[in-house]
C-alpha cells in the first residue's frame, strides 16, 4: 500500500498535477500519506510490536494510552475526514487526464 501511495505521489509531483486548480487535491493527499506513516509509526510503538529497543522512543504506561488512542481512534478518524475531502475535491475539479 505504501509503495502504491508513494508511486501515486511521485507521479503527481513529477507531472505537476498539483498545480491550479488542483492544489486542494494535493493537500489532503499529502496529509493522508503523512497520517499513514504516523499510523504505522504509532503501531510499531505498541507492546504487541516489540521493537522499542531498536528505536529511541520509549512508551510509558501513560504514554501507552496516548499512543493507543492515536493509533486506533484519532488517526483513523482524521484519515476518514481527509479521504472524504480528497475524494470530494477529485469529484469537484476532476482528474487531469484519463488514467
Amino acid at each position: 500500500m505504501i509503495t502504491l501511495v508513494f508511486a501515486h505521489m511521485l507521479r503527481i509531483l513529477f507531472k505537476g498535477i498539483y498545480k491550479k486548480p488542483r492544489e486542494l487535491h494535493w493537500v489532503p493527499g499529502a496529509t493522508l500519506l503523512v497520517l499513514t506513516l504516523t499510523l504505522c509509526y504509532t503501531g510499531t510503538l505498541l507492546p504487541a510490536n516489540n521493537i522499542l529497543d531498536q528505536g529511541s522512543s520509549t512508551v510509558s504506561t501513560r504514554g501507552f494510552g496516548v499512543v493507543y488512542a492515536l493509533h486506533i481512534a484519532c488517526i483513523p478518524l482524521l484519515m476518514s475526514a481527509f479521504m472524504g475531502f480528497h475524494f470530494m475535491m477529485v469529484r469537484r475539479t476532476g482528474i487531469s487526464e484519463p488514467l
Binding site: 505504501i2 506513516l37 509509526y41 521493537i51 531498536q54
Partner: peptide
C-alpha cells in the same frame, strides 16, 4: 514478523536515533 521495523519507517527511526531531544 512484528519485531522488524517496516522498511518505510527506517529513515525516521534513524533520525530519531540521531536526535536525542524528543
Amino acid at each position: 514478523s512484528v519485531n522488524k521495523i517496516p522498511w518505510f519507517l527506517l529513515p525516521f527511526y534513524y533520525i530519531s536515533g540521531l536526535i536525542n531531544h524528543k
